[in-house]
Structures are given as C-alpha cells and as structure tokens.
Design a protein around this nucleic acid. Structure first.
Lengths: 117, 117
DNA sequence: TATACATATAACTATTCGCTTATATAATAA
DNA sequence: TTATTATATAAGCGAATAGTTATATGTATA
C-alpha cells in the first residue's frame, strides 16, 4: 500500500478506537480498569444497568484488544491490556479524566465489591 | 452538585468530545487544523465528499467549541480553538496520530489549495 | 442590478448504536 | 444430578448518526 494510504488507514483505526471510548460507560470502565481489575457483576452495580448491556460493552473493548479477560472460578475478571498498540494513546488520554475510583468506593461501602472474590 | 456527581459529568463531557473525534473525517480535520487553517472548499476536495457533509462536520466541531470560524471574503476559514477547555487533551491525542499533511500537499499539486486565497 | 461562488440549513434515508428481553453456556454448590 | 450464580449471545426496537438532495444565505463581481 502507498505511504499516504497507510497514514489514512492508521488514522481511521485510531478514530475507531476513539469512537469506542466516546461512550460514557466504556470510557468510565477503561478509567476504572487503569487502576483496578473488575468483573462484570461489579460494572453492573456501578452503572446500574443490565448484565447484557455490560457484557456487550466489555465485548467491544475486548474485540478492539483494549481489555483482557481472565476467568477466576465463576467470575471473569477484566483488565486493561497494557500491550495494546493503543495503550500509550489511552494512557495519555486517561490523564485528562477525573478518577472514577469513587464508584468502587461506593460498592465497597455497600459490601458489593467483595461478592466477586 | 455532589463531588462524585461532578466527576461523572466531567467524564461524560469528555466522552462526548471523544465521540466527536471518533469519526475519521472529523479526526482528520482536527489533525490538519493543528498545523494549518483550512476552509470548507479545501475539505471538500480532501475528503472527496459533498459540501453539505463537510459543513455538517465542521458545525459539530464548532458547536463543541473545538474549532473557530473566521470569514475572509467569500470563504470561511476554520482553525483550532486553542483556548478550548479540551485543547490540552486533544493536543496529547494528536501526538499519537500520523501527520495528514500529505492531503494538503496533494491539493497544492492539483492547484486546488490556492483557490481559497 | 444580476450572476456566480462559498457556505449553511432543512428534510429525508439508510445504517449504526445501545438498550431490552429471552435464552444459552459455564462453573459452583447442594 | 439439580439448582444457583456469573456471563455470553441473539433478536428486536427506538434513538442517534452520517450521508444525500434541495434550497437558503451571504459575499463578490460583471
């Protein structure tokens, strides 16, 4: 492919990553995962939405290679894939976002975080 | 508003900015504007799409405060708004994208860039 | 003034997106 | 084995998105 073609494709792929992150639920997930791994059931509590909705969001992040899943018993733990080609971009981006750790704190206060461990 | 509420809103607004940038046409526009101001007719040539489509894209960027317009005769010149609250985030982000200046070079070779000056 | 040019806006359409409900899969516990 | 829990997948629906064509606005020029 031509050099300019490569640059256009590279930019389009970055645009697709930004589109993925351009959703408050997924962006919050990524910001949380930057500090703590989490399972689907925790996200369900945090976002107060349905389990399928959460599964669909994490699947998109996984398909793009931004997160990894690790099964631990019944649970599937999601973590940030720091080997992703886009991880450096994402890290820079996350620096501009306010910490969302208060969301995990709220779960802990309700005793809901422990349920996945 | 509560402190956590503010953080949630702040993140949601950032997600909306990323959604705007999560389109290859708009992301390329912003990357180009980081180095050179441009008018609608140039973008029409660059993206080989209709004038209304381009106008609608730049309007979204303008509504979000990411770009500014300046009328110069018949033309309206668009430029990056470096005073935007989100400019620091955008600058960091653009560092990870390949230069799109080849697109302007192609225009110059065709003598199409001069038409707006 | 009349015409051409640059841009904006409006209305419409096809596609994409995120959610819902229902169901399937997988692991654990009784 | 059966029941329970955690997660995934599929199908369907309403809202949002990006493009189109047609038209309006604003500026320059003959």
């Amino acid at each position: 492919m031509s050099k300019t073609g490569k640059k256009a494709v590279e930019l389009e792929r970055a645009a697709n990553i930004l589109k993925l992150l351009g959703d408050k639920t997924r962006l919050t997930m990524i910001k949380i995962l930057d500090n703590h791994d989490a399972c689907v059931c925790e996200f369900v509590e945090i976002f107060k939405t349905s389990q399928p909705a959460i599964s669909q969001h994490v699947r998109k992040l996984k398909d793009a290679g931004l997160v990894r899943e690790t099964r631990r018993g019944q649970w599937i733990i999601y973590s940030l894939n720091r080997d992703s080609e886009y991880f450096p971009l994402i890290e820079d981006l996350l620096l501009h976002l306010p910490s969302q750790d208060f969301r995990l704190k709220e779960l802990e206060e309700q005793g809901l975080r422990i349920s996945c461990e």
